[in-house]
Write a protein that binds this DNA or RNA. Structure first.
Length: 220
DNA sequence: ACATTAAAAAGCA
DNA sequence: TGCTTTTTAATGT
């Protein structure tokens, strides 16, 4: 029994169930390991529930020009693909391992059987999905803002609101932040420099000091 | 205003 | 050092 890998117990969706049910679910699940950079989810292989047990998976879609639009980062306990299980044919949805990552997959038919047997699961799924659509709202709120400057300022202020500290640390690579904000690393770099020249921020790599919070709020 | 392309500079293992 | 990430500059949409 080398598998200390009851990923079912890690997942909010399942971990409120009794041990017997968890065992049953776990027996339906297949485990996979991915190395950093490997593709976990692609449009063809996505008719299954994918759970992150360890590591992190970024979920993104490709826009017309082939640029990626990052949607979210799924961390241990999170999952992706539940809407696909109900028939929503999300075409260009991809998932990639940000680091060495362990994944559990549940087949569509098995998952549907589970929901029939465990009505509690259906409610839990609904609740967790509601939170998820909130995050999607936040993302579309970024894309509705016209200027990159504005999106960047809003992002920095969001980090500040979380920590209450004007010394902020960008938690991802600039390349990924650019994708998150819907722009390129080049433009992002220029906007950072612009804000620095205007005296609104100081930056040393990924450490950013928010010098003028009020002015950042007013960008638009 | 921003993207794209190319290339230099800076970081990191 | 050799590879990856970030920045700078020139040019295109």
């Amino acid at each position: 029994m080398e598998e200390a890998h009851l990923c079912v117990t890690l997942v909010p969706l399942f971990n409120h169930l009794g041990i017997a049910e968890q065992r049953e679910i776990n027996s339906l699940v297949t485990h996979q390991k991915f190395k950093k950079g490997e593709v976990i989810l692609s449009p063809e292989l996505s008719a299954q529930l994918t759970i992150v047990a360890r590591g992190a998976m970024k979920v993104y879609q490709l826009s017309a020009n082939g640029r990626e639009q990052l949607l979210r980062v799924v961390e241990p306990g999170g999952y992706e693909g539940e809407n696909l299980l109900f028939g929503a044919k999300n075409e260009n949805l991809f998932g990639e391992a940000l680091e060495d990552t362990e994944i559990c997959r549940l087949k569509q038919s098995d998952f549907q059987d589970l929901l029939l047997k465990q009505p509690k699961l259906t409610l839990k799924l609904l609740a967790i999905n509601a939170e998820k659509s909130n995050q999607v709202e936040q993302q579309t709120r970024f894309l509705m803002m016209e200027k990159v400057e504005e999106r960047l300022a809003t992002y920095l202020l969001d980090l500040y609101k979380v920590t209450k500290d004007p010394e902020v640390l960008i938690p991802m690579k600039m390349k990924e932040l650019a994708a998150f904000l819907g722009t390129t690393p080049e433009t992002l770099s220029r906007k950072f420099r612009l804000l620095e020249e205007e005296g609104l921020i100081n930056r040393k790599g990924k450490h950013v000091h928010l010098a003028d919070l009020e002015a950042l709020e007013e960008i638009d």
